[in-house]
Amino acid sequence: MIQVTVVDRDGTENTIEVPTDINLSLMEILKASEYDILATCGGMALCATCHIQIIEGLNNLPEASDQELDMLDTLPDADGQSRLACQLHLHPSNNGMKIKLKGSLQ
């Protein structure tokens, strides 16, 4: 199990425990944990409604794909810590990661 701290849009923080043997994206994990994420495109990196900011642990993530970077470029509030949760699969090296939800609710 790894632990990920999630800062919701209202500033509340919760830690979720994620089994390392499941093949789900971070977006799917967040939705299963009842976070309000639209994920309009179903995880295809086409809508950016699962936009997150990596507060801690960015260096333990793989590089973003060109498609993910292209989508992030369309967001006015994206920065160097921005990622799409649908494009991230967690591994033991991501234990202790802290993220902030940024994606649109509409």
Results as ranks from 00 to 15, higher is better:
residue 37 I to S: 08
residue 74 T to Q: 14
residue 47 C to Y: 07
residue 53 Q to F: 06
residue 29 I to N: 08
residue 100 K to P: 02
residue 63 E to R: 04
residue 67 Q to E: 09
residue 33 S to Y: 03
residue 100 K to A: 05
residue 89 H to E: 15
residue 61 L to Y: 15
residue 102 K to A: 10
residue 33 S to V: 01
residue 67 Q to Y: 12
residue 28 E to Q: 05
residue 86 C to F: 03
residue 50 C to S: 13
residue 104 S to Q: 06
residue 48 A to T: 15
residue 4 V to L: 05
residue 100 K to L: 04
residue 39 A to P: 12
residue 20 T to C: 02
residue 8 D to W: 11
residue 76 P to C: 08
residue 72 L to G: 06
residue 87 Q to P: 05
residue 99 I to N: 09
residue 45 A to Y: 11
residue 98 K to R: 08
residue 13 E to K: 12
residue 53 Q to Y: 13
residue 6 V to Y: 05
residue 41 C to S: 07
residue 94 N to M: 04
residue 49 T to D: 00
residue 19 P to Q: 08
residue 4 V to Q: 09
residue 33 S to F: 02
residue 103 G to R: 08
residue 46 L to C: 06
residue 102 K to M: 10
residue 2 I to G: 01
residue 80 G to K: 00
residue 35 Y to M: 00
residue 80 G to E: 03
residue 53 Q to H: 14
residue 24 L to T: 01
residue 31 K to W: 15
residue 29 I to H: 08
residue 5 T to Q: 11
residue 9 R to W: 13
residue 35 Y to L: 02
residue 85 A to Q: 00
residue 67 Q to R: 13
residue 80 G to V: 01
residue 100 K to D: 02
residue 30 L to N: 04
residue 43 G to C: 11
residue 93 S to K: 09
residue 1 M to T: 04
residue 53 Q to K: 14
residue 84 L to Y: 03
residue 44 M to F: 07
residue 65 S to E: 05
residue 101 L to I: 11
residue 40 T to L: 15
residue 91 H to P: 03
residue 22 I to G: 12
residue 51 H to E: 06
residue 45 A to D: 13
residue 70 D to M: 12
residue 31 K to C: 12
residue 83 R to G: 03
residue 62 P to S: 07
residue 49 T to Q: 14
residue 93 S to A: 04
residue 51 H to G: 04
residue 82 S to T: 08
residue 94 N to T: 06
residue 20 T to P: 06
residue 20 T to M: 01
residue 90 L to T: 05
residue 30 L to Q: 06
residue 45 A to W: 13
residue 58 L to I: 07
residue 46 L to W: 08
residue 83 R to L: 07
residue 78 A to K: 14
residue 42 G to Q: 04
residue 68 E to W: 06
residue 98 K to Y: 04
residue 23 N to S: 07
residue 34 E to R: 06
residue 63 E to V: 02
residue 59 N to S: 09
residue 21 D to W: 13
residue 77 D to F: 14
residue 76 P to T: 12
residue 13 E to W: 11
residue 17 E to N: 04
residue 35 Y to A: 00
residue 72 L to S: 10
residue 30 L to A: 04
residue 39 A to W: 10
residue 80 G to R: 05
residue 94 N to P: 04
residue 95 N to T: 05
residue 80 G to C: 02
residue 25 S to A: 10
residue 76 P to F: 10
residue 26 L to A: 11
residue 41 C to A: 05
residue 75 L to T: 02
residue 71 M to K: 09
